[in-house]
Simulated scan of single mutants.
Amino acid sequence: MMGLEYLIFLRGMSRQDFSKKLGITRQQLNSWLNKGKAARPIPYKHIKSCSEFFNVPGVFISKLLTNEDKVKILNLEIQRLEAI
Rank of each mutant, 00 (worst) to 15 (best):
residue 1 M to L: 10
residue 2 M to V: 07
residue 3 G to Y: 05
residue 3 G to W: 03
residue 3 G to R: 04
residue 4 L to E: 06
residue 4 L to C: 06
residue 5 E to I: 05
residue 6 Y to F: 15
residue 7 L to Q: 08
residue 9 F to W: 13
residue 10 L to I: 09
residue 11 R to H: 11
residue 11 R to L: 03
residue 12 G to R: 08
residue 12 G to N: 13
residue 13 M to E: 15
residue 13 M to T: 01
residue 14 S to N: 10
residue 16 Q to G: 03
residue 16 Q to D: 12
residue 17 D to W: 02
residue 18 F to D: 00
residue 22 L to V: 05
residue 23 G to N: 11
residue 25 T to Q: 04
residue 25 T to M: 01
residue 26 R to Q: 15
residue 26 R to I: 07
residue 26 R to G: 10
residue 26 R to K: 15
residue 28 Q to A: 14
residue 29 L to K: 08
residue 29 L to R: 09
residue 29 L to Y: 10
residue 29 L to V: 11
residue 30 N to H: 06
residue 30 N to I: 03
residue 32 W to G: 00
residue 33 L to F: 07
residue 33 L to M: 09
residue 33 L to Q: 08
residue 36 G to P: 00
residue 36 G to M: 03
residue 37 K to N: 12
residue 37 K to H: 10
residue 37 K to C: 03
residue 38 A to N: 14
residue 39 A to G: 09
residue 41 P to S: 04
residue 43 P to D: 04
residue 43 P to L: 06
residue 44 Y to Q: 07
residue 44 Y to E: 08
residue 45 K to C: 05
residue 45 K to Q: 10
residue 47 I to L: 04
residue 47 I to S: 00
residue 49 S to K: 15
residue 50 C to N: 02
residue 51 S to T: 03
residue 52 E to P: 00
residue 53 F to V: 04
residue 54 F to M: 07
residue 55 N to I: 02
residue 56 V to E: 08
residue 56 V to F: 06
residue 57 P to S: 09
residue 57 P to W: 01
residue 58 G to R: 00
residue 58 G to A: 02
residue 59 V to T: 12
residue 60 F to H: 09
residue 60 F to R: 05
residue 60 F to L: 03
residue 60 F to M: 02
residue 61 I to R: 01
residue 61 I to Y: 05
residue 62 S to A: 15
residue 63 K to R: 14
residue 64 L to A: 08
residue 66 T to A: 01
residue 67 N to M: 09
residue 69 D to S: 08
residue 72 K to F: 08
residue 72 K to I: 11
residue 73 I to L: 15
residue 73 I to V: 06
residue 74 L to T: 08
residue 75 N to E: 15
residue 75 N to S: 13
residue 75 N to I: 08
residue 76 L to S: 07
residue 78 I to L: 13
residue 80 R to A: 10
residue 80 R to V: 00
residue 81 L to T: 12
residue 81 L to C: 13
residue 81 L to M: 14
residue 81 L to K: 14
residue 84 I to Q: 13
